[in-house]
């Protein structure tokens, strides 16, 4: 069980690195779907052994929303708007990858220093969670299109979700769920906004967004 858990975590880490390197929007969407499914798997592999109904329920919800719902939705949006398939980056692709690796190294150091003593997080969970979070943020910063920013946001939320998994209890289930729904609503609103951006600017490239400044 534990090694399986570690394996899933490792997969998540690899997916992060691929996200940082990937140059195609479709690929990013797929990776986010993969991450969603891996998150559901993590929920089903509880560290302290017992598996209750609420974990399963939440896992299903995560699978449905993050693993299937969002990616499908985002793909539809990108299809509908006829978005060109390549990611447009602002800082290149090497630098973000480097930043992601640096973040990984830093968070592993952090784990060594303070997290292990706590005994709350399984090995590697904290580094991977933080790396995922920062991967998402790097994508948001690096990519020039509205859609890729949404994907980045999604990935960042995944990282936070990972960190929250060990803390999950019966009582907090509803909140996890509402948070999930909240994220869902956010993605939904963002997608609508992308739609509007496309109709207003006939592109979703954020390079057009330079009107409001000082």
């Amino acid at each position: 069980m534990y090694s399986l858990f570690q394996f899933v975590i490792l997969l998540l880490l690899i997916s992060d690195l691929v996200v940082l390197w990937s140059g195609r929007i479709l690929m990013l969407i797929r990776l986010s779907a993969l991450q969603g499914m891996l998150l559901a798997a993590l929920l089903l592999l509880p560290i302290n052994g017992h598996l209750d109904g609420e974990h399963i329920f939440l896992a299903c919800a995560v699978f449905a929303l993050k693993g299937i719902g969002f990616p499908v939705f985002l793909r539809r949006v990108s299809h509908k708007l006829g978005i060109e398939p390549m990611v447009r980056v602002r800082l290149g692709r090497f630098f973000p990858l480097l930043a992601g690796l640096a973040c990984l190294a830093f968070s592993m150091l952090l784990e060594n220093r303070i997290a292990e003593a706590l005994g709350l997080f399984p090995h590697m969970l904290l580094p991977v969670a933080l790396t995922t979070l920062f991967t998402g943020l790097i994508v948001v910063v690096n990519c020039a299109k509205a859609l890729t920013q949404v994907i980045g946001y999604l990935v960042a939320e995944n990282g936070i979700f990972i960190l929250g998994i060990p803390l999950m209890t019966e009582g907090s289930m509803w909140f996890e769920l509402s948070i999930l729904l909240d994220v869902f609503a956010a993605i939904f609103v963002m997608a609508i906004a992308i739609n509007h951006i496309n109709s207003a600017f006939s592109s979703i490239d954020l390079a057009h967004f330079r009107n409001l400044r000082d």
């Binding site: 948001v140 956010a186 509007h196 951006i197 207003a200 600017f201 967004f209 009107n211 409001l212």
Partner: peptide, 10 residues
């Protein structure tokens, strides 16, 4: 306003 909305949202 679209631009503002997007920035706000993001």
């Amino acid at each position: 306003s679209m631009e503002a909305t997007w920035k706000y949202l993001m």
